[in-house]
Design a protein around this nucleic acid. Structure first.
Length: 572
RNA sequence: UGGGGGAUAGUUUAGCGGUAAAACUCCCGGCUCUGACCCGGGCAUCCUUGGUUCGAAUCCAGGUCCCCCAGCCA
């Protein structure tokens, strides 16, 4: 978009490197130099989720990296489901993942693949390894195998079945496939080195018996390849040039390469690792997220408090904000924990220039204008966006009875409190100057209404005499305000490092959800589109929740505005 | 004597032998019909100790600390 010439490569062979994107991270550096040196003709990456849960922010980083690199260098990126373990995987997850990747703004075109597409080929390659004496069928039970594997500091011991003949191995493996043996009875292992310092090289399991129905292959198979045996070869089949994964797979790389070197694969992919995303006050492991859902701590995978793409989307965060966040975070090899404030900031920065403004009072306090005629109302004009006249304007109703925010009034204001207090004049946004004259309290002493006067000359928001006020408040008119439910969210966990000493779920924040039911919003909000954030002036960004019905408005707070006053106030 | 990786502001990154850059956070100030946005300003003995060099965050050596690995999960 910013540079069509570079993108389309019209100036030469089509192999040129997009110079404008040089050096943004070490992965791009590698790709660039591979392209320049002619080690690859064009870049092919892949995003390879296992369909056993919903995509989350960590995946967003990987998606943006893999699809982004392909985009930057004029290559392509595949979506490949790593569906090698049927007991954990579900079609519903497969569907959700595709929806989420598309929503994030990326497209795999024709290249939707599955590891299960290659089961037959992988099987053939397994027989090939057996044929070359590099794999064997092992009857050792799981516990015994663990004991034989040794420890981090002690070498393992060879399995007694390691020396089986090629013919016997082939026969046994074929019978494994044929379904002759129960789950766990035997496995196929690579014959590498039981004394290796790298645990992954101590004769890793290639196939295990799993009598389970696979979401795609059904009951065609009862043996399934492991991640290690499937991943690199799938990459090779698809012509992946740069197989990018997270740091914990670093010591799988020698194994990845071992398969590539010992099998007649059609291409030579290379694996590169980057540091996965961690966020403060958040948990990003599928294990924890699954528990949150299953144990009912949240309403589902798309609960707006969840760090899943579905949850974040429901909350009102636009995909562009996520892409911007990922861009700001960068890609490196050092372990890191990103401050969740960085996400909030990216969301605000993305929303601010585009979100239309509306007025909504979350905790209403009645305001009566004594010198405004009873029964009368009038229309005022409000800009939809203060910095963008093209966004147009709307009419709002003004009248004798209004509602303002409870927190915008203090009977005994501290220093620097600019809002309403006895005798204080403020501006009602797009409306008039009003001055607080009297406080109405109930028998408990709670303030239930404010009696004010307004200055008719200040219509539109400015006084002809040039008088200034220190505050401008949002408000709604009693005459046509609409009831709404507003859901306020805060961190799901109450410490920046959930689980740091114990179970992460013990660190759940019991106050992560605050449902406000008596909110009053301006009528224009009745047409708010689900999931599309608008700014409630002075309150934050909000998006209509899918729970919204014609007679029941429900809004999610996407993110609050920066609130300097709240910070000042909170100080000791 | 297991193996593999990593250390730059509070956080995340840039820097690729020429005198530390950006974003976020925080602090101070300005502007303002959103205490928002925006605009100024502040915040780093580059883990450490030695070495190479006219010159080191960058190169070399030793040390320290942190992360990952013992699933028939990915």
């Amino acid at each position: 978009m910013e540079n069509d010439t570079v993108r389309t490569g019209t100036t030469g062979t089509g192999r040129e490197v997009a110079a404008a994107d040089t050096g943004r991270d070490f992965i791009r550096d590698i790709v660039q130099s591979d392209l320049e040196a002619g080690r690859v003709q064009s870049v092919v990456t892949r995003f390879p989720p296992e369909p056993n849960g919903f995509l989350h922010l960590g995946h967003a980083k990987s998606i943006c990296l893999n699809f982004g690199v392909a985009q930057d260098f004029g290559g392509r990126c595949h979506l490949r489901f790593d569906d090698t373990n049927p007991v954990k995987e579900e079609q519903a997850f497969i569907d959700a993942i595709q929806r989420d990747v598309h929503w994030l703004g990326f497209d795999w075109g024709m290249h939707l693949h599955h590891a299960s597409d290659y089961f037959e080929q992988l099987y053939e390659w397994a027989e090939h390894l057996i044929g070359t004496g590099k794999a064997y069928v092992d009857d050792t039970p799981p516990e015994a195998m663990r004991a034989q594997r040794g420890t981090l500091t002690e070498p393992g011991q060879n399995s007694p079945f390691r020396t089986r003949s090629i013919d016997e191995n082939l026969d046994l493996f074929r019978r494994m496939r044929a379904g002759e043996f129960p789950n766990g009875a035997r496995v196929l292992r690579a014959k590498i080195d039981m004394a290796s310092g790298n645990m992954n090289l101590r004769d890793p399991v290639l196939y295990r018996i799993l009598h389970a129905t696979h979401p795609r292959t059904g009951d065609a198979w009862c043996i399934y390849p492991t991640y290690d045996f499937a991943h690199g070869q799938s990459d090779a089949i698809e012509g992946i040039t740069h197989s990018v994964c997270t740091l914990e797979f670093e010591d799988h790389r020698p194994l990845y390469d071992w398969f590539i070197e010992n099998l007649p694969v059609p291409s030579r992919p290379h694996q590169y690792e980057f540091a996965r995303l961690n966020l403060t006050y958040t948990v990003l492991s599928k294990r924890h997220l699954t528990r949150l859902v299953r144990e009912g701590h949240v309403s589902g995978w798309d609960d707006p408090r969840m760090p899943t793409l579905a949850g974040i989307r429901r909350r009102g965060v636009p995909a562009a904000a996520l892409r911007e966040f990922v861009r700001r975070v960068g890609v490196a090899r050092a372990y890191s924990v990103v401050d969740v404030a960085m996400l909030d900031s990216a969301v605000r920065d993305t929303l601010n220039p585009v979100a239309e403004r509306r007025m909504a009072v979350l905790r209403p306090l009645k305001l009566i204008i004594e010198n405004y005629p009873e029964g009368q109302t009038e229309k005022l004009t409000a800009m939809n966006h203060p910095d963008n006249p093209d966004a147009g304007s709307r009419e709002i109703t003004f009248g004798r009875e209004l509602y303002v925010e409870q927190e915008d009034f203090m009977e005994n204001p501290p220093k620097k409190f600019f809002r309403l207090s006895p005798g204080r004049e403020v501006r009602l946004r797009w409306g008039y100057f009003v001055t607080c004259r009297e406080i109405v309290k109930d028998t408990n002493g709670t303030v239930v209404a404010l009696r004010c006067t307004y200055d008719p000359a200040s219509k539109g928001g400015n006084s002809p005499d040039g008088r200034k006020v220190q505050a401008t408040l949002h408000w709604v008119a009693a005459a046509d305000a609409v009831q709404a439910e507003v859901r306020l969210y805060s961190h799901l966990f109450n410490r920046p490092d959930p689980g740091a000493d114990g179970d992460a779920l013990d660190d759940l924040n019991p106050q992560s959800l605050d449902v406000l039911t008596g909110c009053l919003v301006e009528p224009a909000l009745q047409c708010a589109r689900i999931g599309e954030a608008v700014q409630f002036e002075r309150n934050g960004y909000f998006a209509a929740d899918p729970d919204t019905r014609p007679d029941r408005l429900v809004f999610n707070r996407t993110v609050g505005l920066r609130d300097t006053w709240a910070k000042v106030q909170a100080r000791p």
